[in-house]
């Protein structure tokens, strides 16, 4: 059965925008399963439940997991984590780039041969799609030369070559196109207003999408 794997970031964008309930109709249209790894569940539920600020969001996500809308899965990813975190080197020391939860989600997407890996987080997306751009970004920001361990990079590139990345943005645009948000088109609200509100909501609550991309999506949907 086909499936999508979600990283913590994409679920956070959805729940903080009050859009998580759209996953159910989207899943029916997708005709497949939605997965998260166990460590993502920890970041989405267990950790925020320890505080007050995002406790409600944690309870909402917990309910979605309980109802099997997001299925959880566990895997051992220590070697992949070490591999990624030894790829970029500055001053002869590796840069610890990513966390276990992020790597678990990526590994799960590969192991399950997912149709796509849903990730709003910029670093992980760059690592998969264009690690050289990530190197350039770090060099510009850190004012320092970054060296890439080419053997590790080649191995990693082979490992992720079939991974396709989408963000919560694309998922919500699909929901918009299916008319799943038409209930918000009340009074004088136009489709363009709704789209603008949707895309800015996603961006302002953490999805790594640029203003230029927001503008281009609005143009594309006209």
């Amino acid at each position: 059965m086909k499936n999508l794997v979600f990283d913590t970031s994409s679920v956070i964008t959805l729940v903080t925008n009050n859009l998580l309930d759209l996953l159910m109709p989207l899943k029916s249209k997708f005709k497949g399963d939605f997965f998260i790894p166990k460590s993502v569940e920890y970041e989405l539920v267990d950790k925020p439940l320890q505080g007050k600020m995002f406790k409600l969001e944690a309870l909402i996500v917990r309910n979605v997991i309980k109802n099997n809308l997001l299925k959880t899965y566990s895997d051992n990813v220590d070697s992949l984590l070490n591999q990624i975190n030894s790829m970029f080197i500055m001053n002869d020391r590796p840069i610890i780039l990513v966390s276990k939860a992020e790597v678990e989600a990526l590994a799960l997407a590969i192991n399950l041969q997912s149709s796509a890996y849903v990730v709003d987080e910029r670093t992980m997306r760059l690592l998969i799609e264009d690690p050289i751009k990530l190197k350039k970004l770090q060099e510009r920001k850190l004012h320092n030369k970054i060296r890439i361990n080419k053997d590790v990079l080649n191995e990693f590139s082979k490992y992720v070559k079939n991974v396709k990345v989408i963000r919560s943005t694309e998922l919500m645009l699909i929901a918009y196109e299916f008319g799943l948000m038409d209930k918000y088109l009340v009074s004088n609200t136009t489709n363009e207003d709704l789209l603008d509100a949707l895309l800015w909501g996603l961006k302002l609550r953490g999805c790594a999408i640029s203003q230029e991309e927001v503008d281009s999506f609005i143009e594309l949907e006209k």
Partner: peptide, 8 residues
Amino acid sequence: EHGISLGR
């Protein structure tokens, strides 16, 4: 902003 992931 310097390229370290959100999770890390």
